[in-house]
């Protein structure tokens, strides 16, 4: 079987740093959010600290990977994402990536506002909690679809290899991305 390069090392690192950070934040966030888990775990001040600094660490790590890695390559990928036409990515992948990036920014802003708002009324908005919660629900819907296609669905799950090893089979690339590898 011959292989095609699908994702650069920078793209893969960015993806897995994003995934690890996001899952840590979902886990700690659910402990803070669901009364049953809050009661079970307790230690709210500690969980709050892990969640807050985890969020700061998440965004910082992403920025660091982008800066230290192949940022020119990432900029090319970003320019590709600007147009919703099939290329190296199909339209669904582009929408997923664009929404994930927008949600990350909104998570960061609303999370910082929650943290600042606890300290100063000027940063307190009635909609902050709603936005942060709504983003969680929207992200979980995206994640469920993403995991289904990347891990479960037989026709598409080969793509996971691209994100782990960086390469996919040439035949698969030809079939799924004719505009990229026709």
């Amino acid at each position: 079987m011959s292989w095609v390069r699908r994702f650069s090392r920078t793209e893969r690192t960015l993806h897995w740093v994003n995934a690890a950070g996001f899952l840590l934040l979902v886990a700690t966030g659910l402990i803070l959010y669901l009364p049953s888990l809050s009661t079970l775990v307790g230690r709210r001040p500690l969980v709050k600290d892990v969640h807050f600094w985890g969020g700061v660490g998440w965004i910082s790590a992403l920025a660091l990977v982008a800066l230290l890695g192949d940022w020119r390559g990432l900029l090319r990928t970003a320019r590709d994402l600007e147009r919703l036409t099939p290329s190296r990515f199909n339209v669904g992948q582009k929408v997923n990536a664009l929404l994930s990036a927008a949600f990350a920014i909104l998570f960061l802003v609303s999370g910082l506002l929650l943290w600042l708002g606890e300290r100063d009324t000027r940063f307190r908005f009635a909609g902050t909690v709603l936005l942060h919660d709504g983003l969680l629900y929207a992200s979980l819907v995206l994640l469920a679809g993403h995991l289904y296609l990347a891990v479960i669905h037989p026709a598409t799950r080969h793509s996971l290899r691209g994100m782990t090893t960086g390469k996919v089979s040439e035949e698969w690339a030809r079939r799924h991305y004719p505009r990229w590898f026709g």
Binding site: S8, D70, S87
Partner: peptide
């Protein structure tokens, strides 16, 4: 382009 980066084709600027 760095060596590591995949081919960019089909990008419709």
């Amino acid at each position: 382009r760095s060596d590591d980066f995949p081919e960019e084709r089909g990008v419709s600027e």
